[in-house]
Design a protein around this nucleic acid. Structure first.
Length: 490
RNA sequence: GGGCCGGUAGCUCAGUGGUAGAGCACCUGACUUUUAAUCAGAGGGUCGAGGGUUCGAUCCCCUCCCGGCUCACCA
């Protein structure tokens, strides 16, 4: 390790401590109380003159004035002041504190509890010990660590010095826990399915490709869990869900990370209307877990997850905002012509389905600020969803939106193996037409459907994006502990 | 990938075609109730990398690397 001047100074102190027979990294702490325990019972412990041993990282400056010193330590549960006097501690350890210990070192202190004359709860230390010497210096005292890249690369440091970062990840844990409670009590079994898949599927995306050496087999990192979870519905499980990472080999921006956390669930004998109610229940519970109320504020916009969400058919939504009826413009040629004739500014797409998706993304999606379901997607956009009984060109599918972001995707699952086979074949034609995200044929999945899958409702929700909305973080990197970053040159 | 902005001390940032600056941190000294402790003093730089122009480049030009925001694509 190459050390800069400040690191070298601290390393020299570390070496001197070793020379004095003080381990810079002792095996364990003799802590008797967490800081929050001390603070909660402070007056009782103080009145009883009970000695306590607390431990934590020295945060802020050590304030040393001749024969007395102050420092604050933080242990993850709270912050507490140490009152350190040469008279109580003795010359050796007082000078050791002054000369060999630094801000950010992790220490333990034994003493009795008293308030200082300004009333601050403090440990009046009579025994001090080092638990872990710190070589890296802390960031600047006031501006702190603000560089976004450094915050994400050194998340450990970000967590030390920026308390609100810890709050985001506590909120994340609380939201996922609430999600699990809703699903567990709703009759869903939590399962795990393969990350390494010989055929990728369940979504429209480019995969990461990898290789199994011993088997000589090409494998893909999953882009969705959908097809495996539906095999479990075929297997007779009445409801399943999985919360886990998906991997998509796409661009990186403020709402996309190459690996992201998805919850997918499937319920036998249900349909997409069941899933809409489930989404409402999930978001309400997650919002409550994060914010204590069923409303959330995202970038000064108040979102209400309390009531049922509006349900807006995609065909009507596109017609309202573009004037085009995709129901009657069912060929790629006539759709392109209508887009040109109406002066709509959208990228030209190779397939009808992609073009409809483009129209929606450009003209409708940004307007969906409040929680909204867009329902009934064209069949060509939805190769795994069941057709509407009264209009076979559309499917029983919805996507859940808020603040212009897609939070979830659900449908009444296609269980007709012959229709499914045809959809896969159509996707193959789209792939040939230039859609490199088109779905792969999955013969084993068709075989499962040939054993019969009951009518089923299925749902996928992007956990990271939900957290962005609920915790008011406009960048996905702020809700992922270690977001993907470009590799730094050596 | 395109556009805009940026990369200078450990951190946060100024700045200039002529020997590199501040605050905080760090180091030395003083100080027995501090809360951004205070006071006095000292040290610390491949100015992102490479090339070019120039007597001289951290500054001007070119290329590249990295980052932020943004547009495009994807959840």
């Amino acid at each position: 390790m190459e050390l800069n001047d400040l690191q070298a100074q601290r390393a020299a102190k570390l070496a001197r401590l070793r020379t004095d027979g003080i381990s810079p990294f002792p095996t364990r702490s003799a802590r008797t109380h967490s800081i929050t325990e001390v603070l909660t019972h402070f007056d009782d412990l103080a009145a009883a003159a009970t000695p306590v041993t607390v431990a934590g990282r020295i945060v802020g400056a050590r304030r040393i004035m001749g024969k007395i010193a102050f420092a604050h330590i933080e242990d993850g549960t709270g912050t507490l002041q140490l009152w350190i006097s040469r008279a109580d501690l003795g010359d050796t350890w007082f000078e050791r504190f002054r000369d060999e210990l630094d801000s950010f070192d992790i220490v333990e202190a034994t003493g009795t509890l008293r308030r200082t004359k300004v009333g601050e709860p403090s440990v009046f230390v009579h025994t001090l010990g080092l638990l872990a010497k710190t070589v890296n210096p802390p960031p600047e005292k006031w501006a702190g660590l603000t560089d976004i890249e450094e915050r994400h690369r050194q998340r450990y440091l970000d967590l030390i010095v920026n308390p609100e970062v810890r709050a985001v990840f506590q909120a994340r844990a609380a939201a996922i826990s609430a999600m699990r409670r809703v699903l567990d009590t709703g009759g869903f079994l939590e399962v795990e399915t393969p990350v390494l898949q010989p055929i990728y599927g369940g979504a429209a995306a480019r995969p990461f490709t990898t290789h199994h050496n011993a088997l000589g087999q090409q494998l893909y990192l999953r882009i969705a869990t959908e097809l495996y979870l539906k095999r479990l519905i075929v297997g007779g499980l009445p409801g399943v869900y999985e919360i886990g990472k998906n991997f998509r080999n796409e661009g990186v921006d403020r709402s996309h990370n190459p690996e992201f956390t998805m919850m997918e669930c499937y319920q036998a004998y249900a349909d997409y209307t069941t899933m809409m109610r489930l989404v409402e229940d999930l978001l309400r519970a997650m919002c409550l877990a994060v914010n204590g109320v069923t409303t959330a504020t995202f970038q000064a916009q108040t979102l209400d997850f309390g009531p049922a969400w509006p349900r807006l058919p995609m065909r009507a939504a596109i017609a309202e905002h573009t004037g085009l009826d995709i129901g009657s413009l069912s060929e790629i040629g006539t759709l392109h012509a209508a887009i040109a004739a109406n002066g709509l500014k959208v990228e030209r797409k190779p397939t009808w389905a992609k073009q409809v998706d483009e129209l929606f993304s450009a003209y409708v999606q940004p307007l969906l600020v409040q929680p909204t379901f867009i329902i009934d997607y064209p069949v060509a956009l939805s190769p795994l969803a069941k057709r509407k009984p009264d209009d076979p060109t559309f499917t029983e599918r919805f996507e859940a939106f808020a603040v212009g972001m897609e939070l979830g995707n659900a449908f009444t699952e296609l269980n007709d193996p012959f229709d499914q086979e045809q959809r896969f074949l159509d996707q193959g034609r789209d792939f040939a037409a230039g859609d490199d995200e088109a779905h792969q044929m999955d013969v084993d999945y068709l075989n499962a459907l040939l054993y019969g899958m009951p009518p089923t409702g299925g749902l996928g929700m992007g956990i990271d994006r939900i957290l962005m909305v609920l915790a008011d973080r406009p960048n996905i990197r702020e809700v992922i502990l270690f977001p993907h970053l470009r590799q730094r040159e050596a």
